[in-house]
Design a binder for these strands. Structure first.
Length: 489
RNA sequence: GCCCCCAUCGUCUAGUGGCCAAGGACUCCGCCCUUUCAAGGCGGCAACAGGGAUUCGAAUUCCCUUGGGGGCACCA
């Protein structure tokens, strides 16, 4: 391979980073890293109305959060900058001039209303609705005069009429042929002298030396137009690779009405960047052996030839599972560092700081990390450890504490806890003795204690929870439960 | 309407003419483990859209149909 790989991701800052865009970015990034090439980030902000700097910043931070890095970009710089289309006007003007000199473009004076009317007529007649090339036949001296007279005009591509069909060798799709007859002389530069997307991206990809364009299927139909522009500029078109889009469960393009679509919202929901990256990578690409792989493996093994053509349906259930896998793999330290801010936000950890030493938190970590799918579930799961007035869940009360013998069991547990050493093993031993002595079912003893201490039949492991809670608070809760059982009677 | 793409379990996919009475993962359902919930282990349900053609042989090649998607702008 003579050329070094150069790929780009060109998001439009009209919103946050979309899940689909993120996947495109990941594939481009992985491809670049795999081949030791460059990954370029370019901001496609030609839509001045809807583009904002806040969005640009949000996209950059979402990408960083996912662990993607780029070699050239608006913040990183690079020799082919600027990396924001809004700042590249001069380059587009220059490119248009070159096209004029080469005779590959011509001014068109047709106004929008007229074009719209023509389109409708053509469609009604079931004919091709592209531009009919009226202005292509205006002699040069005449159009020069009209331009000099400041008559509004756009610049259109002069599609070579003798070119033959446009064949694209798509890495993912194979050979795709577009009949030249379906190509019209589309607009390159608008009346206000701004470039259209079709023109700006091609000029940029050309100037930036992009070697491979990896993007969504939705651009496949635009590709022949872009090839025409590359050729008109005298440039070699890059290699194209079009992957299937991401759909919602109803088979329609994934959008807001299917639920959260931005990377940011998944971060907020408690998904880990590694999990999201892994899951996204799997949506259209796969490894024979594994579903779970790290960043390095993705880079090492990524190949365009293994990217699938068909669209993929967004499956939040699988993402959840994957997130759980990564959650369980974390060390206690990592886990706590992710979870601490959440506990603080929920107001759980501010008050009683002293008893919540980092050792204490580290012991807590493995107990909960194994039981959750999303980080934000932590709060509910550990809340019982932080409150001073525990509320016992009604259904749990009815299911366990209302049973015959519950109160006796709790009293015996209380006296056992009074003496025992505060380690999970010792607590367990003491409690097993309780059910032996009282001839109660172990399940009743354990569950009654669980409900008394944690407020629910569902909780982290019992003995560890008691130890984390501390003797004093545990006892208080057991007695409180005994009281409330008596009150119910 | 015109042009283009896609089509294997509910979902993500493996499969590139015989190794496939189609493999893995998620989900779902059993069982085991077990003081709860998880996790884990074991097992199960479940697919080549339909029709032609090529071939000794087709999930794999070709054609048609059907279904889905995308594009056809002075949006990106």
């Amino acid at each position: 391979m003579s050329d070094t790989v150069r790929v780009r991701f060109a998001p439009s800052p009209t919103g946050h980073l979309h899940i689909g865009g993120a996947r495109t970015a990941i594939y481009n990034w992985a491809f670049a890293r795999h081949h030791g090439g460059s990954f370029i980030l370019r901001i496609d902000d030609t839509d001045k109305e809807r583009s904002t700097d806040e969005n640009t910043q949000a996209i950059l931070s979402a990408m960083r959060w996912l662990g993607l890095d780029w070699d050239e970009g608006p913040d990183a710089g690079g020799e082919f900058g600027p990396y924001s289309q809004a700042l590249r006007k001069g380059i587009y003007d220059q490119a248009l001039n070159e096209l004029k000199l080469a005779g590959n473009t011509y001014p068109c004076f047709c106004d929008s209303a007229l074009l719209e009317a023509k389109r409708e007529t053509a469609r009604a007649a079931k004919k091709y609705s592209g531009y009919d090339r009226t202005c292509r036949n205006i002699p040069a001296h005449e159009s020069e005069k009209r331009i000099a007279a400041e008559e509004p005009h756009v610049w259109r591509i002069k599609t070579p009429l003798d070119r033959g069909d446009i064949i694209i060798d798509d890495v993912i799709r194979g050979q795709v042929t577009f009949p030249l007859s379906a190509m019209d002389d589309f607009v390159l530069v608008r009346t206000d002298t701004s470039p259209t997307y079709m023109f700006a991206t091609v000029v940029d990809d050309w100037h930036m030396g992009i070697t491979h364009i990896i993007r969504g299927d939705d651009h496949l139909s635009n590709t022949p137009r872009q090839v025409i522009v590359f050729e008109a500029l005298g440039a070699k078109a890059p290699v194209f690779a079009h992957m299937g889009l991401i759909f919602g469960p109803d088979g329609k393009r994934l959008s807001k009405r299917h639920g959260a679509t931005s990377v940011e919202s998944y971060r907020e929901m408690g998904y880990l960047p590694e999990a999201l990256l892994n899951y996204l990578a799997l949506l259209g690409w796969s490894l024979d052996e594994d579903n779970v792989f790290d960043r390095d493996t993705l880079v090492r093994r990524f190949e365009l030839s293994r990217v699938s053509k068909n669209p993929a349906v967004w499956d939040i259930g699988k993402l959840e599972w994957m997130n759980g896998v990564y959650l369980r793999e974390m060390t206690a330290e990592e886990f706590i560092s992710k979870v601490l801010p959440l506990l603080q936000d929920a107001g759980l950890i501010a008050g009683d700081q002293a008893s919540h030493s980092s050792d204490w938190l580290l012991e807590l970590a493995p107990l909960v990390s194994e039981r959750i799918k999303r980080l934000d579930e932590v709060v509910e799961m550990v809340a019982f450890l932080f409150t001073d007035d525990l509320v016992i869940d009604e259904r749990s009360f009815d299911a366990v504490l209302a049973k015959e013998g519950a109160s006796d069991a709790l009293e015996a547990v209380a006296s056992a806890l009074n003496e025992v050493e505060m380690t999970p093993e010792a607590v367990e031993e003491a409690m097993r003795e309780v059910h032996g002595k009282l001839e109660l079912k172990p399940k009743l003893v354990f569950q009654a204690t669980r409900v008394a201490v944690t407020g629910s039949t569902v909780s982290p492991p019992l003995f560890e929870s008691i130890v984390l809670l501390g003797r004093e608070r545990a006892l208080k809760r057991v007695w409180a439960a005994v009281d409330s059982i008596k009150k119910r009677r």
